[in-house]
Computed example of a mutant assay.
Amino acid sequence: MRILVVSESFLPHLNGVTGSVLRVLDHFAATGDDLGVIAPRWPGATTSLPTSCGRQVPVRRIASAPMPGCGDVRIATTSASALRRRIDEFRPDVIHLASPMILGGRAAVAAQRAGVPTVAAYQTDVPGSTARYGMPFLQSATWQLLRDVHNRATVNLAPSHASRDQMLSHGIERVDLWRRGVDTSLFSPALRSESLRAAYARPEEKLVAYVGRLAPEKQVADLRIIHDMPGVRLLIVGDGPEKDRLRRLLPRAHFAGFRTGTDLAAHLASADLFIHPGELETVGQTLQEAMASGLPVIAPRRGGPVDLVAPSRTGWLFTPGMLDELRDRARDLLFDDAKRRAFGRAAEESVRRRIWPVVAEQLRGYYLQAIEQHGRIGALR
């Protein structure tokens, strides 16, 4: 199969969208598919992606500019006509639109003109984030943009039941469910390190971890309710625009910065509990990674975490905005060692089969569905 991936976000910027695209590309490179990527141009960005099987995937970089006030987000400045030429050059069987907005929207138009089926994977709750960035008046317009983009796609994919319901409620059509995978060969309780743990907490303290961007939409500041608990130490892994503010707000917390690979996995496995306070998670990828590391998890009862967390078994869900409930749920696990370990074992077991090769082959099924559906629509025209 010839697969062209158009990704709104890509290396060198690492986030959930980039991570899932890299996993999918790595799998399809190993299975012998012909691959190409169209992504925003970044300073120092490469035009070739090495994969674990030794193949190089060509990356066509598109002119882009940083979004004002949020340099991590790149806005493509190319046209649908220019993207059409790239599509014609590659001659794909299907185009994968990863978290499409501006670049993905223009690619959807170009794909329609080229007569190529598209699969659009929703992942980022951009409309919800507008309020966190002080621009709630943009929420309706952002949903209108997403609706226009996704309704051009042959097949749309939501990462969770909550996201699917949200998309359908805003008029997006043809929505199926495609969850994200987790690398259980990397994230494992076996990487727990007592020496690493000792660098962040005293023996009598419990270590609570958060992994993710330090940005308004992640609501990391809500962890102050945990920060002030006696006998508890916070470990914050990640970077972002709120880093300095959070350091002032959480002076007893340890800020470990951005971590990847085995280093990240060891940090997770060395904690006692994982909490993600953000209410806009469509997937909850770091929750899956924490669970694979043998940690019970706590998250708001909203979005992707609702699909991942089994209350009273693998962790707890709390009512969004109810920080006292979050604290009580954390206390329930932190100071009952037997319960916490049982929850951690159940959490690891729950994600053991949710591996990327299985998830990527499910995605291939949606590619084939889009190709077949596109052929039927073409025959009616």
Rank of each mutant, 00 (worst) to 15 (best):
A338S: 13
G54D: 04
L11C: 06
D33L: 05
L196V: 14
R354L: 15
E325C: 08
D125W: 02
A290V: 05
A342K: 12
S350D: 08
G19K: 08
H170L: 02
I3W: 00
I102M: 07
G171W: 12
E217K: 06
D336G: 05
L4V: 03
I236K: 03
W42K: 02
T286P: 00
G303W: 02
P66L: 02
S160Q: 10
S79K: 01
V116L: 09
P305W: 07
R327K: 12
A153M: 05
R245M: 11
K218I: 07
G378E: 13
S64W: 01
F343S: 00
V283S: 11
I102V: 15
D239C: 08
Q123G: 05
V175K: 00
P127W: 01
S99K: 00
T47R: 13
R41W: 12
Q166R: 15
L4R: 00
T286M: 10
I172P: 00
A63F: 09
L363T: 02
Q362R: 15
Q288C: 13
D337N: 11
T118E: 03
V182G: 04
R84C: 09
H13R: 09
R106P: 00
Q362Y: 09
V309K: 04
E205H: 11
Y210E: 03
A347C: 05
S129T: 13
R245G: 09
A131V: 11
I3L: 11
G315Q: 06
R248V: 09
L250Q: 07
V359E: 14
L323V: 07
S160D: 09
S48V: 14
R61S: 05
A292N: 06
M167V: 05
T142C: 12
R329T: 07
Y210P: 01
M1F: 07
H170P: 04
L308M: 12
L249M: 15
E204V: 08
P100M: 07
S20A: 13
L177F: 10
D34M: 13
D222V: 05
L207K: 01
A266D: 07
R352D: 06
S129G: 06
R91V: 13
G375E: 08
A82C: 03
S140I: 08
T31F: 10
D324Q: 15
L380C: 14
A292L: 09
W356L: 04
R376C: 13
N151E: 06
V155H: 08
R74K: 12
V358I: 15
W178L: 14
P305F: 03
I225R: 13
R354S: 12
A221P: 06
R376S: 11
D328C: 09
P159H: 13
R248L: 12
A131F: 03
R197I: 09
V24G: 01
P92Y: 02
T78G: 01
V309P: 03
T118I: 06
A269L: 05
G104W: 01
P92E: 00
P357F: 10
A158P: 11
I172F: 05
D328S: 11
L249F: 10
L308W: 04
A209Q: 04
D125M: 06
R113I: 12
W143K: 01
C70Q: 14
A221D: 14
K243V: 04
A215F: 04
F274R: 00
A82Q: 10
A370Y: 02
A215D: 11
N15S: 13
C70Y: 15
Q166L: 15
C70P: 11
A45H: 12
D332T: 14
I298Y: 02
R192F: 10
G238H: 02
